[in-house]
Design a protein around this nucleic acid. Structure first.
Lengths: 191, 191
DNA sequence: GGGTTTCGCTACTCCAAGTATCGATACCGA
DNA sequence: TCGGTATCGATACTTGGAGTAGCGAAACCC
């Protein structure tokens, strides 16, 4: 979502399908060297791409990481109509995802490290601000944007609440998480 | 504890009582600008001290922060004799401290930010490794070192478990925390 | 006053994020 | 086939923070 641009490709050289390579390189590099160790130079080298190319597509390292996570998590199956229901289902889905042995287990560590970047945390924290919540509420009829907003809130919240542990969640914890998150979303958020 | 040196002052220019000024400056700066915003230059300026002086007394920014926290938390009242009992009482004390309105509330944010430094987290994570636990066990008859070891484990664990929230803990959560921590300390720690 | 130790200052090194520039490519439509 | 256009790659920056080196200036003890 925090992409640098999303133009309609008409003339000129088209944007090669580099995203997949960058995502894979990002994931592997972060998994190997941690978030701090995954420098943009290393990621670019691993993807066989110039660093400048990455910065043309993403505004910052944090934005790249977020998009990488969203990409790996795949589309979010939405259930319910009101905000509360949507969030609950999304949170359950996210918690389940992160608890999975495959992608989720691998990402648990990624989350842990990713949250350690102040810039990224600030980026995620913005999703909790009133304007974003309002936008979320108002965007119910825009499937694309709704999905992104929700997934952002979900990922941000998950990071906040379980990012430090890196451990997969037990089934029983999901309900507590739902409660925590909805409570947090209802209350005014300082930060 | 991760001090640069602790010589017996005999001849020469004595080490001025700079620690207090540095601690105060560190705390204020971190409180105002966050951990990342509290650069060593700023801290030094706020303390009216040269940056090199700080690096002569502390080995790194992380070490300075840890000592600052330990200083502000004050001495740890130990209870019990075996490791398990010591840790439990220490954890309860730490959880209570961090939940206090005065120092604790101020430090909750400090903790949150402090954990975001990979170097500091590595520094704290080392306390969980087997050698440190063994040392903790063997240092029972060295009050000074025992206190520091325990307090390090406590602070590190608290950071791990509640660092991301920045919220004070409820009374009821303490018991869960004790259980979690002791379980974690018993199991082999990857990282 | 001499010996010793620490302080302050200046000027570095190192490294990662992010930017600027520009020639090289790859595609479109005519 | 040939412009026009937009992207890519490479190199070389700028910026900023952590940590270090070296040296003269205190500040203390004897």
């Amino acid at each position: 979502m925090p992409r640098a641009s999303t133009p309609a490709r008409r003339p000129g050289r088209p944007r090669a399908s580099i995203d997949a390579a960058v995502f894979a390189a990002t994931l592997n590099t972060v998994r190997e060297l941690g978030y701090a160790g995954a420098t943009m130079d290393r990621i670019a080298a691993a993807a066989g791409v110039a660093k400048t190319t990455i910065y043309r597509r993403w505004l910052s390292k944090g934005a790249l990481i977020v998009d990488c996570l969203l990409d790996a998590f795949g589309p979010l199956p939405l259930e319910g109509d009101d905000r509360e229901a949507i969030l609950s289902s999304a949170i359950r889905w996210g918690a389940a995802k992160i608890g999975e042995p495959g992608v989720g287990a691998a990402f648990a560590g990624v989350f842990t490290d990713a949250v350690n970047d102040p810039a990224l945390r600030r980026l995620l924290a913005e999703r909790f601000q009133a304007p974003y919540l309002r936008a979320l509420k108002e965007a119910v009829d825009e499937p694309e944007r709704r999905l992104l907003f929700v997934i952002d809130v979900v990922v941000g919240t998950l990071l906040h609440r379980m990012g430090m542990t890196g451990a997969p969640m037990a089934e029983a914890d999901v309900d507590d998480l739902v409660e925590m998150v909805t409570r947090e979303l209802r209350a005014p958020h300082p930060e």
